[in-house]
């Protein structure tokens, strides 16, 4: 009698363990096409996280500012582009104007926020970027309206549609825009790498990243560097905004998704560009795989917190991230 009562509980536990540890892998093996599709989706969203994180890293390296507004800069850049196009400006002129707007933004931020706050504790500058975030949200909505907009892809000669591969006993769909995003993102990262290592300004940027005082003493203008680096982050934001906007609408709802770049940074380290990319891909992949195979067990929606919990574990066991410098204070 007693044993019989125990048995259902035991088998329920076994079933639960089976659902957690074995069943997802059986599913993966049974439907490799679905697995490949999920992996691809994960890589694409991971790439977008990585692009936002890249903007963070650029600014953090050069000015030590943890720029919380990077996610909003993505939305703002995309909104400017779409808003100008909707106002009747030709697509490529709108793109150029959006770049100009990002430069003005960098200039204004440097003048009105960074320069007066120079020498303040990092945390104060961090909070100041909250101010930038909220200001940009309000400003963007007043100028361009609060409704979600559709990103212009055709006028910018971005491809549409999908490529379908019939492999692995099923089919895998790759959106062309995602492939274009991957190519352009790689080109941009390569361009940034060349810019950092080969040009005069790039070397100055790296000098500033190493030490503000030393850079000042050899005649590098910190103010100029800050404008350049915020402008570079603005450009990255614009590219991110175009491709992200092409996948969903352009609206300030992207802000919450953009926050995912923060765990990416924890994973990759705050000062490492390769770290941002690898971290972004890991978070994107992990999030999609977990949501697809394990999410149904807990009712779905795990991608809202998965990245943060991973970051929390990293903070507990490896606070400098995968590639970061070991500068973190651990008290």
């Amino acid at each position: 009698m007693h044993v019989e009562k125990q048995r259902p509980a035991g088998s329920a536990l076994m079933h639960f363990l089976y659902l957690i540890f074995i069943d997802p892998f059986v599913q993966m093996a049974q439907a490799p096409d679905l697995l490949a599709q999920t992996l691809w989706e994960g890589l694409v969203s991971g790439m977008l996280y990585a692009l936002i994180a890249l903007g963070f890293v650029l600014i953090f390296k050069a000015s030590g500012v943890f720029n919380f507004a990077q996610g909003i800069m993505v939305v703002f850049a995309a909104l400017t582009l779409v808003g100008l196009y909707e106002a009747g400006v030709p697509a490529f002129l709108a793109l150029a104007l959006a770049i100009v707007v990002m430069f003005i933004l960098a200039f204004v931020v440097e003048r009105s926020v960074l320069r007066p706050l120079v020498g303040q504790p990092d945390i104060i500058l961090f909070m100041a970027t909250f101010g930038i975030t909220y200001f940009l949200i309000g400003f963007g909505e007043i100028v361009f309206g609060g409704d979600p907009k559709v990103m212009i892809t055709a006028p910018l000669y971005l491809p549409k549609g999908a490529i379908t591969y019939h492999t692995l006993g099923g089919m895998v769909q790759l959106q062309k825009i995602d492939i274009a995003a991957a190519v352009i993102a790689s080109l941009m990262v390569a361009g940034l790498a060349i810019f950092f290592s080969r040009t005069r300004i790039g070397r100055a940027l790296r000098a500033v990243a190493d030490s503000h005082e030393a850079a000042l003493s050899v005649g590098i203008s910190l103010e100029q560097i800050w404008v350049i680096v915020w402008f570079a982050a603005g450009l990255v934001a614009l590219v991110t905004g175009i491709f992200w906007g092409a996948r969903s609408d352009v609206s300030f709802a992207l802000e919450v998704i953009a926050l995912k770049a923060l765990p990416v940074l924890i994973l990759g380290g705050f000062t490492s560009i390769p770290g941002a990319i690898v971290g972004g891909l890991i978070i994107g992949l992990g999030e999609k795989i977990v949501e697809f195979y394990w999410g149904p067990l807990v009712g779905g929606g795990t991608d809202a917190w998965f990245a943060y919990v991973i970051a929390l574990l990293f903070l507990l066991f490896r606070p400098q991230g995968l590639f970061g410098e070991r500068i973190i204070e651990r008290i």
């Binding site: 009105s112 100041a128 909250f130 101010g131 930038i132 200001f135 949200i137 309000g138 400003f139 909505e141």
Partner: peptide, 10 residues
């Protein structure tokens, strides 16, 4: 109010 709060924080 978003704009004002943002500016006010800075």
């Amino acid at each position: 109010s978003f704009m004002i709060v943002g500016a006010m924080i800075i």
